[in-house]
């Protein structure tokens, strides 16, 4: 499949990556080549897609007990943050509410 620059841009936006115009062109070509290659899969006759089950279904999944363990100190939670304010992580003003 031939990816257009617009498609690359759309995918980059989904991935929150900004690309330079050169990168757009470059990746459009390169990804098209990779997709052409992986597309040979489409020539295979395959059963219809279903739930991919490889594990034994009769075994109940072991789950974790609901027992609290101490959280880490707030300073430690913030220790790797590029920016923080008081006990909060700090980011540029969020203008659009919700998601």
């Amino acid at each position: 499949m031939k990816l257009t620059k617009e498609q690359v841009l759309h995918v980059a936006r989904l991935a929150s990556l900004s690309l330079t115009p050169e990168e757009e062109a470059h990746f459009a070509g390169e990804l098209s080549g990779i997709l052409d290659y992986v597309e040979t899969l489409n020539r295979l006759e395959l059963p219809p897609p279903g739930l991919h089950v490889s594990e034994d279904m009769s075994e109940p999944t072991p789950l974790a007990a609901d027992m609290p363990r101490p959280s880490i100190p707030t300073e430690e939670a913030l220790s790797n943050a590029p920016d923080h304010s008081g006990s909060f992580f700090r980011v540029p003003r969020i203008l659009e509410e919700g998601r």
Binding site: L3, Q7, V8, V11, A12, L14, A15, L17, L19, E23, F27, E30, L31, I34, L35
Partner: peptide, 10 residues
């Protein structure tokens, strides 16, 4: 890494 993120996102 970018190449793979783009491919995987696509």
């Amino acid at each position: 890494v970018k190449r793979r993120i783009l491919l995987g996102t696509f």
